[in-house]
């Protein structure tokens, strides 16, 4: 019982930490340094033409249709964090699902095995 309680306590704590982080990010992201990093500086000094992924929907953390640069960056930050969270959890689910199906072949796990991995499994592995 003690363990269940501490887990719930930790979940609340983690959620609060994530909420604080997201708030901080939303407020701070427009003020992040706009100076180039080491690689970008070398690229600029070299005078070579560099290009970004033109097909990216929100290139340079700018959203089409949002006028304010700061708002655009804040929204990009939120969207990016959400997409990353979902994608990483998706990779995790996919991986444990695959592992389970393997073990499931030896019996035991039954109906739970291979849950939610159809379609994606061949593409990833």
């Amino acid at each position: 019982m003690r363990r269940a309680f501490s887990r719930r306590y930790l979940a609340a704590w983690a959620l609060a930490a994530v909420a604080c982080g997201v708030l901080l990010l939303v407020f701070a992201s427009p003020w992040a340094s706009k100076s180039p990093d080491g690689v970008e500086k070398v690229a600029r000094d070299s005078g070579l033409k560099t290009s970004d992924n033109a097909a990216a929907p929100a290139g340079g953390y700018k959203l089409g249709g949002v006028k304010s640069k700061a708002t655009s960056r804040r929204l990009s930050a939120l969207i990016g964090v959400a997409v990353t969270l979902v994608a990483a959890i998706g990779v995790g689910l996919l991986m444990t699902g695959l592992g389970k199906r393997r073990k499931g072949a030896g019996g035991g796990e039954g109906p739970r095995a291979g849950r939610g991995i159809e379609g994606g499994s061949t593409g990833e592995a």
Binding site: V18, P36, D37, I89
Partner: peptide, 28 residues
Amino acid sequence: IPLLGITAAFIFAAQLLNFPVAAGVSGH
């Protein structure tokens, strides 16, 4: 799995916040 997601989201967020390192150069 939840830790996987939270770590990835944390790293994405932290990488957005460039801080100045030297004159005219930043890092994250």
